[in-house]
Design a protein around this nucleic acid. Sequence first.
DNA 1: GCTTGGATGCAGTAACGGTTAAAGGTACGA
DNA 2: TCGTACCTTTAACCGTTACTGCATCCAAGC
Lengths: 304, 304
Amino acid sequence: MLDLARLRALHAVSVHGSVSAAAIALGYTPSAVSQQIAKLERETRTTLLERQGRGIALTDAARHLAATAQQLLAIVEEAETTLEEQRGQPTGRLVIGAFASAARGLMPVVLASLAAEHPSLDARLLEVDPHLSVDLVAQGVIDLAVAHDWDIAPLPAPEGQERAVIGEDLCDLLVPAGHPLARVAARRPLRREDLPGRRWICQPPGSVCHDWLVRTLRASGHEPDLAYQAAENHTQIALVAAGLGVALMPRLGRGPLPDGVLALPLEPVPVRRLYALWRPGAARRPAITETVRLLADLWPRRMS
Amino acid sequence: MLDLARLRALHAVSVHGSVSAAAIALGYTPSAVSQQIAKLERETRTTLLERQGRGIALTDAARHLAATAQQLLAIVEEAETTLEEQRGQPTGRLVIGAFASAARGLMPVVLASLAAEHPSLDARLLEVDPHLSVDLVAQGVIDLAVAHDWDIAPLPAPEGQERAVIGEDLCDLLVPAGHPLARVAARRPLRREDLPGRRWICQPPGSVCHDWLVRTLRASGHEPDLAYQAAENHTQIALVAAGLGVALMPRLGRGPLPDGVLALPLEPVPVRRLYALWRPGAARRPAITETVRLLADLWPRRMS
DNA sequence: GCTTGGATGCAGTAACGGTTAAAGGTACGA
DNA sequence: TCGTACCTTTAACCGTTACTGCATCCAAGC
């Protein structure tokens, strides 16, 4: 009787292309994977792996067997989902992928709640780039993604994935104390006309914050002066505190501002919307529904 | 990750209706099966078995899981067949069911050849009633059946099974020495007209030999006098030797006749045809094709 | 009542399946 | 050409698993 664990090892080797990569993916040492497959070869009396240079190559029989393994694993996963659904309690492993701010500002409290309320759920966190989250969900690397879009560039409904809105995250303009705009903001909310002509501190190109700034200012005919680029919020805040420029920053995960940095509201306020994404059908898992519920429930009200 | 061995245990319990029956079918002790399923219950955090009187009953979740297990096991069996086919050498377990005479007269030499030529094949023999063999093949209890029909009642091509002819087994009339028919047979072959009016020794009702006798004599307007009924050939021969009557007996597995018993040829000769039966697609297994080949090759020429 | 048949719990044991450490082999660079 | 780095495999070791055998418990039947 073929063993499922061994077939899973073969499948992992087939997918990742090497014994070591498969071992990492499975959480074993390469030695263990190698032995599993050697045992599978003995049991089936078939050569599955052939050494090719420094690595290995799968034989035809191995590729066919790996395809069968994939089929089996899909059925097993389906069965496990059904069991969890029937039981109604979150169980098993749930890998959540979240972008940096959500990982800092939202996930700790969510993960703590999950751990407290559902001890048999093994929830894990992976900080991922929001652009990659759709693919990572599809590939099965993560089961649930926390992603976001931006008011001027809504997230297209991902092909064959389901989603729910977690909440809306508002943006303020960070300025050093004593900045001219602080006096303006004391009288009225800042408008987009107030933004051109500043030295900007923002994220590197390719990030949504960067794009928002460029597109919004260009729409009013100006090219923003992106003088300082840093990925981390704290770095940006430090640059603002040093009086080097102004920054646009969402409230989620921003943390308390140091003395000498002010958060000024904008009108209309830039907003990004946070979503949870999962594979179609995965909502049958209580683990998914419960986590999505907690994400929305624990979404800080002050954000919106 | 659900374990296939445990799922197989659950499936066996589901099929056989009790832990002990499942254990027998799987070749374990009931304790082992009970522990397997207890572990499966812990892993899935689901109740699968409930005590019902002296036995057990499956929960809804267990029935659903057993159905999934069946699906998985079918895929695994298919994969194992493909592996054996690719390798081209008989391997794995092959359960052969044969009716009594074939088990005695044909299978020993076939099994010995298989064991000698294919050490990695685990061939097993089960003596089965020929009427049941079609069902047993369909149920998967046996992988290959050696069955037979009778010239006046050909075996209908079994629904959804494949077959091959092994050979033809001829029948003689056994009489005690000094019986009047012995003198007739010395001059010419016996004909059906010589048969009525004898005291018959034959198998119990329901067996093919019994049916052949009754139908053949009734066709010529006579009711046979079935004075002595015994299932075993040797018993019948002993009854003939004691001068109690005559018997019709196929040559396969008949063994040497004791002094005082003669085998007289009939014209036309009653003949039964031996078949090998297997599930459709199973012929992809070299184990099946090789065994069928040996069955036909080692079929004793003197029989036909 | 006792007996029978079946499921389960427990102790013991053999085999399995992992890790670490060391040993091939191959490609790449000095 | 040799050394190095990388990957796979092997060997030794060890904790865990998964059987068996036996005892126990429960329900049904005599």
